[in-house]
């Protein structure tokens, strides 16, 4: 099957800055795909390469099997939801949504009717006459979504779509976006720096760092089996154990990740560690232990029986929870993460 989007050795350099450096990636049709990474990791540039706002300095991009690197944005059947929405301030909400159809030359009556339908789809019926400036952040977000969907794109690009919303609205919009994507069966590619958002929404995730993809996989793969220290560290707050320690525990000399929720308190057996501090999170309790000179964070039940800080406790985890990673086991002071 042809990929919806395919990067082949794509580079985008801005002078000496390698924003995107040798990217290979295939996004399947109908997939909800997340580009995850810290700021400056190249995820937004990758999205802009798909939209056509940037041209690759090397390599090429295919959209549904067609080479797209020389095609301007206005001739790509791809639409974008911009980070700060980029609604046209001089047009009403309805005119904003109908903009794409107007550019295609659709008659006024038809395009406004279609725009009204899309406003219903994003649950803003009757908001058409308002000015975008009079809407709340969440409403603007929906208008931007409706506007991007009006041309029935093959691929919808979302640049940090929920970044400007507050927590509660964000969770609600996550659900809505997910169900909308299922209903429309359009390929969604979205950029985020929020690993929680990526894990909960995406079918697959590509983790970016310094212009390169560190790992591609389903949320579970990425979370359970991070391939490198960077991924383990960035996706969730994993314990990254240095090779010295891992060698003592398993006999293999490698970096390993250990999820905080995999750590249990036991009364006998396990490993002895000193409690450093603990904090109450509501549903859970987070405790930091000193284990052989390394800090290990554990997420425990809220009613876990912890000793006084400075006293020892016994920690245990399943053998498979200690996940070995592919990083070179370099010796040195950068040990404890």
């Amino acid at each position: 099957m042809t990929s919806a989007v395919r990067f082949k050795n794509v580079c985008r350099h801005f002078g000496a800055i390698r924003a995107v450096d040798g990217l290979n990636l295939e996004i399947a049709p109908g997939e909800f795909f997340a580009l995850l990474g810290p700021s400056g990791s190249g995820k937004t540039t990758s999205l802009r390469l798909i939209a056509g706002f940037e041209r690759p300095t090397a390599g090429h991009i295919e959209i549904f099997g067609e080479r797209a690197d020389a095609i301007p944005p206005y001739r790509r059947n791809v639409n974008t939801v911009f980070q700060d929405y980029a609604l046209f301030p001089h047009l009403s909400v309805l005119e904003n949504v109908a903009y794409g159809l107007k550019m295609k030359g659709v008659a006024k009556k038809q395009r406004l009717a279609r725009a009204e339908e899309l406003l219903e789809l994003v649950q803003l019926p009757g908001y058409g006459d308002r000015s975008p400036a009079k809407l709340s952040g969440g409403q603007r977000q929906r208008v931007a979504l409706a506007r991007a969907l009006v041309n029935e794109p093959k691929v919808l690009l979302l640049d940090e779509p929920l970044g400007a919303l507050d927590l509660k609205l964000r969770e609600q919009m996550q659900e809505e976006l997910k169900s909308l994507q299922k209903r429309l069966a359009i390929t969604f590619v979205f950029v985020t720096h929020d690993q929680g958002e990526a894990l909960s929404m995406a079918d697959r995730i590509a983790v970016f760092n310094e212009g390169k993809i560190m790992q591609v996989g389903t949320p579970e793969e990425i979370y359970r089996a991070p391939r490198s220290r960077f991924v383990a560290d960035f996706v969730g707050s994993s314990n990254v154990l240095p090779p010295d320690l891992v060698e003592r525990l398993t006999g293999t000399r490698a970096w390993a990740s250990l999820r905080p929720e995999a750590v249990r308190l036991v009364s006998r057996g396990g490993h002895s560690a000193t409690l450093v501090s603990s904090s109450f999170l509501g549903a859970q309790r987070r405790a930091v232990f000193d284990f052989d000179g390394f800090q290990i964070t554990a997420l425990l039940a809220a009613d876990a029986k912890l000793p006084e800080p400075g006293k020892t406790a016994r920690l245990a985890w399943g053998e498979s929870d200690l996940h070995l990673m592919e990083d070179e086991p370099v010796d040195g002071p950068e040990g404890a993460a």
Binding site: A51, Y74, R75, T80, F82, L87, M103, A148
Partner: peptide, 22 residues
């Protein structure tokens, strides 16, 4: 803002259309 011009192009407006509409 530059992103308005990008949004216009993204929605299928050729440069001439972007000029007159945005």
């Amino acid at each position: 803002p530059n992103n308005l011009l990008e949004a216009s192009a993204d929605l299928g407006a050729a440069p001439r259309q972007t000029f007159w509409s945005v």
